[in-house]
């Protein structure tokens, strides 16, 4: 028997990185903005999606992928709004992986403008897995507290946008939106921050405008690389 040391220097996420690159390539080619929504459970991801669907009516073409540990409930909520939805039940896993999205590529319509992916409710694990999205949006809701960005830095570091959700509760709970924003911006100075209430509609127009801009940005990028 002989022993030998071998240098490796490979990322243990490399198979996810490869699967994500494939998803990204496919949707960029077709001009689809893929949005990965991250938050702890109950921060308001599904409700926000319902409101965004109202503000992105046809001719905008949408689809939604819902990630949950169990149940088809969130996909049903989306279908009730007339938008096609696919439910991924992870059966215990606390996050989605790019391979799970890759498996749906054959089924998803190709003529889309926006594909929203609602990740499993968890502010830690999903942050480590690129799904091939072009835009990562993290939600932090007012009841969770304004001290959360530094407790869960990776989610805030890897996102492009932050939605301070349930903004209608500011003033009712001891949550300082400026503290939450400031802490998030220390971690990620280029984060776009939106104060949003799905209940009153506050901030939704700005968020929708941002999504349209991000989608236009995809096309511009393609033009540059072409």
């Amino acid at each position: 028997m002989k022993r030998k040391d071998v240098e490796v220097y490979e990322d243990i996420l490399k198979s996810n990185v490869a699967a994500a690159a494939e998803v990204r390539r496919r949707f960029r080619e077709q001009g689809v903005l893929v949005v990965n929504l991250l938050s702890s459970p109950g921060a308001g991801k599904t409700t926000l999606l319902e409101r965004l669907i109202d503000r992105l009516p046809p001719p905008a073409r949408l689809a939604v992928i819902e990630g949950d540990i169990e149940t088809e409930r969130d996909a049903e909520r989306i279908r009730a709004k007339g938008v096609p939805a696919w439910q991924i039940q992870t059966g215990g896993a606390c996050h989605l992986e790019a391979k799970m999205i890759g498996r749906l590529l054959g089924e998803l319509p190709s003529d889309l403008d926006f594909l929203f992916i609602e990740n499993v409710g968890n502010l830690v694990c999903p942050a480590a897995f690129d799904l091939g999205e072009s835009l990562r949006v993290v939600l932090l809701s007012v009841p969770e507290g304004d001290d959360k960005p530094k407790k869960y830095p990776k989610a805030f570091l890897t996102a492009q946008a932050l939605v301070l959700s349930k903004a209608d509760l500011v003033g009712l709970l001891p949550f300082d939106p400026e503290r939450a924003r400031g802490e998030a911006l220390e971690i990620n100075p280029s984060l776009a921050v939106f104060r949003v209430s799905a209940l009153t509609g506050e901030g939704l127009d700005d968020l929708v405008a941002y999504l349209h801009l991000a989608r236009a940005g995809l096309a511009a990028e393609d033009g540059r690389h072409a």
Binding site: M1, K2, R3, D5, V8, Y9
Partner: peptide, 19 residues
């Protein structure tokens, strides 16, 4: 500081295997 890299591994091979 953001990734998980396998730096090196130690392998056990048969004696007769040429390196």
């Amino acid at each position: 500081g953001t990734d998980l890299l396998v730096e090196s591994i130690e392998l056990e091979t048969e004696d007769e295997t040429p390196a």
